[in-house]
Design a protein around this nucleic acid. Structure first.
Length: 667
DNA sequence: AGTCGAGTTCTTTTT
DNA sequence: GAACTCGACT
C-alpha cells in the first residue's frame, strides 16, 4: 500500500518532482520544513525513509549542493538505500554526498585530518574480535597473572566496560559503579588497562570502532578552525534512527550542527540499542539542546493492517508513562486476519507449525520471500533451520558468520592490511600464527624483530622478513612457509602504488596463501571461490586504504554470489537485524519468558527495552502476524518448562486469537 | 617456554 | 560451532 511513486519514470531527463502529490500532509510538512533544527518523530511503517529521501531531494531542488549535505545513518545498508533512491529521484550521484554510518564518516574525517592527533592516513581498523585480542595481549603483557585469577573479568567484559564508557562519555569508574559494581575493586586496574591499550593502538597506527568516533570528536574539540570549517560546510545534517544514537554520537551531531541545521529523524519507541550506549534521552531532550526546533509527527501507517496496529498500539500503551513521546499509529489499510498466538510443545513443533502454515499461504498466492521468521537471539532459530533443511525449503539467514568475518577472508585481509601498515601487530599475528609451531608468543617476538631489523638496516619491515637475523628465529617447521610468505608480501609491496587494489588482492591470493589453504582445508576450493569474489569486490575501489576500511566496516555486506535478490527464500533474522524491514507475513518465535524477554534482560531489569524490541518485531508485519512460544525448552541440561512471555499477557485479549496446535492440522 | 590437541561451555542484540 | 581451559609434547 505504498504511495504512488514516480521512480524511474523518466530515465533520461529528471522531471521536476511533485512533492505535494507524492507525500502525505505529515510527510510534506517535514520534507518542506524551513531551515532550522527539526525533530521528525516517525512511527513504524510511516514512510520514514521516504521522508528522508524526499527531504534530500527537496534540498537539492532548492539550491543546496550535494556536498553541503551530511547524511548519517545507523547501517551501511540504510545509507546506500537512501542515497540510491535520491539518485533515482534527482540524478545526483551517490558519491557526491557525505553519507554513511557514523563510523564510516569518522573514518573518512580521520584519514584526512588524523595527523593532528597522531594518526597517519594509512591507519588500519580493527574489528571487534581483533580489538579484543589486542586488548587481551596488552593486559597479559602488563600483568601476567591477571587472568589466572578466576574472579577477574574476562577480556570481553573489560572491553565492554571500556567501550561503554567511551560511547557514553562517562568515566570508567562510573560505568563500573552503575553496571559492574562487583568489579569496583578493579576500577583502577581497568582504567590502567584502558590507558595502555589506547597507547598501544596509537603506536601501531590502528584504531578500533570506538576510536573512529572518539578521535573524531577529540579532533573537532581541539581544533576550532577545523570544527568551524565542518560547521560551515555542512549546511544540512540529516540523522536517521536518532533514537539509537549514543552520547558520543549526539555530541558529534550537536557540535557539527552548531548552526542549527540538524534534522533528526527517529522513533523513541524503537530504541533498541541501549546495550551499546544508545540513549533515548537524546531524542527526548533534542528540543532543549536545539531551541526553536520544530517537531514533525508522522503517524499514518501504510504498512500494516489495523489488527496488527491494534496490537502494536497496545504495546505502546503499556510503556511506563512519561518515558516517551505520546504517539499512536493510525491505520489506512483495510482489515485482515487478527494476529494469532500459537502455543506449541517445543522448538521442533514450532518449526513444523510454521511450515504447515506456509503451505496455506502459498495457496493464497504468497511466496517464500514474502515471509520472515523473527527471533530474539540467533540460537533460537536452530530448530527452524534443521526442519527447513530437512524439508529442503530454501531460506536465507542474516546472521552467524558474516562473509568478511570468515577465517580465510580475515587471513587474507590481514596480509593486505599488514603491507599497508607494517606497525600493525594484530595483522602480523593473524597470518604468522598460521605457520606451524608459531603461536602468539613467537609471533610477537618475530614482529618486534622485524621492526628492529628494519630500523637497523634501514630497509622496509617487509624486506626485513628475508634478513638472516630474522630467519634464524623462525621455528624450523615454519621455515618453508616463511619464505613463501615473505616472497608474497614483497611482491605485494612492490605492487603498491602502481597496481590497482584488485590486482594486489589477486597477487595475495595466488601467493603463499593458496598453497597454505590447500593443505589445510578439504573444502579449499569453496574458500578459494570466496577469495575470488573478494577480487570482484576490490574491483570497485581505486584506493587500497578505502578498500581495507570497507572490509572492516561493511561487515554485513555479503559475497556477490549471495546478492541474488530474486531468489525466493524464507528469511530468518533476529529482530535487531529486521529493523527497518517489512514482510507481508511475520512469524515471531520463542515468545517465552527467558527467551523473549531474554533471561539476562530480566535479571538486569531491562524489560522496557525488550518490550520496545517486541514492538519493533510486531511492526515489521504487513498482512499477517503469528506469535508462537514453545512450552518446553530442550536445550539446557534438564529440559525446562517455559511460561508464555509476559508481553503476551500485557496485550489486550481481544487483539489476538489463540491457535491450538492440534486444530491446525488442516491449514 | 611455547605450541597443539582434546575436551568443555556457552553466547542477545552490532558498527 | 567457536572460544576457552587444561595437560601433553616439542
Amino acid at each position: 500500500m505504498e504511495l504512488p511513486s514516480s521512480f524511474n519514470e523518466s530515465p533520461a531527463g529528471f522531471s521536476p518532482i511533485d512533492f505535494r502529490a507524492e507525500l502525505n500532509d505529515e510527510q510534506y510538512a517535514a520534507v518542506s520544513a524551513e531551515p532550522g533544527p527539526a525533530l521528525v518523530l516517525a512511527g513504524a511503517g510511516s514512510g520514514k525513509t521516504r521522508t528522508l529521501t524526499y527531504r534530500v531531494a527537496w534540498l537539492l531542488t532548492h539550491g543546496v549542493n550535494p556536498w553541503e549535505i551530511l547524511l548519517l545513518t545507523f547501517t551501511n545498508k540504510a545509507a546506500h538505500e537512501m542515497l540510491s533512491r535520491v539518485e533515482n529521484l534527482t540524478g545526483v550521484a551517490m558519491h557526491k554526498f557525505w553519507g554513511g554510518t557514523f563510523h564510516h564518516i569518522g573514518q573518512r574525517v580521520l584519514r584526512i585530518h588524523g595527523k593532528a592527533i597522531g594518526l597517519e592516513p594509512h591507519f588500519n581498523i580493527l574489528d571487534q574480535s581483533d580489538a579484543e585480542s589486542l586488548l587481551n595481549a596488552t593486559i597479559r603483557e602488563d600483568d601476567k597473572n591477571f587472568f589466572k585469577n578466576k574472579d577477574n573479568p574476562k577480556t570481553r567484559v573489560i572491553s565492554d566496560i571500556i567501550s561503554l564508557a567511551r560511547n557514553t562519555l562517562l568515566p570508567i569508574d562510573e560505568i563500573i559503579d552503575n553496571r559492574y559494581n562487583y568489579f569496583e575493586h578493579l576500577a583502577d586496574k581497568i582504567r590502567h588497562f584502558n590507558h595502555i591499550y589506547q597507547e598501544c593502538k596509537l603506536k601501531q597506527q590502528v584504531v578500533d570502532f570506538d576510536d573512529l568516533l572518539d578521535h573524531w570528536l577529540k579532533l573537532l574539540r581541539q581544533d576550532e578552525v577545523l570544527a568551524t570549517q565542518f560547521q560551515e560546510r555542512f549546511k544540512h545534517i540529516l540523522v536517521d534512527e536518532y533514537q539509537d544514537t549514543n552520547k558520543i554520537q549526539s555530541e558529534l551531531i550537536d557540535l557539527l550542527g552548531l548552526n542549527h541545521q540538524i534534522m533528526a529523524v527517529g522513533d523513541d519507541a524503537q530504541c533498541i540499542y541501549t546495550w551499546r550506549g544508545a540513549n533515548f534521552e537524546n531524542i527526548m531532550t533534542f528540543t532543549d539542546r536545539h531551541p526553536g526546533a520544530v517537531i514533525h509527527k508522522i503517524e499514518i501507517n501504510y504498512r500494516s493492517t489495523p489488527e496488527i496496529l491494534n496490537l502494536a498500539n497496545g504495546i505502546l500503551s503499556t510503556q511506563p508513562l512519561g518515558t516517551g513521546y505520546r504517539k499512536e499509529l493510525r491505520a489506512v489499510r483495510s482489515s485482515n486476519l487478527i494476529p494469532f498466538v500459537v502455543p506449541v510443545m517445543d522448538g521442533k513443533k514450532q518449526a513444523q507449525f510454521i511450515m504447515k502454515r506456509m503451505e496455506g499461504l502459498f495457496d493464497q498466492g504468497y511466496q517464500l520471500s514474502d515471509m520472515a521468521v523473527l527471533y530474539r537471539a540467533h540460537h533460537h532459530a536452530i530448530d527452524m533451520q534443521i526442519e527447513l533443511s530437512r524439508a529442503s525449503i530454501p531460506f536465507v539467514i542474516t546472521s552467524g558468520v558474516r562473509f568478511f568475518e570468515q577465517a580465510h577472508i580475515k587471513d587474507l585481509v590481514s596480509q593486505l592490511a599488514y603491507v599497508y601498515n607494517p606497525q600493525d601487530s594484530s595483522a602480523f599475528q593473524r597470518f604468522t600464527c598460521l605457520l606451524p609451531r608459531v603461536g602468539e608468543k613467537t609471533a610477537s617476538r618475530l614482529h618486534r624483530l622485524v621492526l628492529e631489523q628494519s630500523g637497523e638496516k634501514n630497509i622496509s619491515p617487509i624486506q626485513a622478513f628475508s634478513v638472516d637475523e630474522v630467519i634464524k628465529k623462525v621455528p624450523v617447521d615454519a621455515q618453508e612457509d616463511w619464505h613463501d610468505l615473505a616472497y608474497t608480501l614483497q611482491d605485494m609491496a612492490a605492487a603498491v602504488g602502481n597496481r590497482t587494489p584488485k590486482e594486489i588482492v589477486k597477487i595475495t591470493i595466488e601467493g603463499w596463501y593458496s598453497s597454505y589453504i590447500r593443505n589445510l582445508y578439504s573444502n579449499w576450493s569453496d574458500r578459494i571461490d570466496d577469495l575470488e569474489s573478494l577480487v570482484g569486490f576490490a574491483h570497485r575501489f581505486d584506493d587500497m586504504t578505502e578498500l581495507l576500511s570497507q572490509l572492516v566496516l561493511l561487515n554485513s555486506e555479503i559475497s556477490d554470489r549471495d546478492v541474488d535478490e530474486d531468489f525466493d527464500a524464507l528469511r530468518l533474522t533476529t529482530v535487531h537485524q529486521a529493523k527497518g524491514l517489512e514482510f507481508p507475513i511475520v512469524f515471531i518465535i520463542g515468545l517465552a519468558e527467558g527467551l523473549f524477554p531474554n533471561k539476562r534482560a530480566m535479571d538486569e531489569d531491562n524489560l522496557d527495552e525488550e518490550r520496545r524490541l517486541f514492538y519493533v518485531a510486531i511492526t515489521r508485519a504487513k498482512d499477517e502476524l503469528y506469535l508462537s512460544y514453545p512450552m518446553i525448552n530442550e536445550y539446557g541440561s534438564p529440559s525446562m518448562r517455559l511460561n508464555p512471555s509476559r508481553f503476551l499477557d500485557e496485550i489486550d485479549r481481544e487483539h489476538y486469537e489463540i491457535l491450538r496446535i492440534h486444530e491446525t492440522t488442516d491449514w
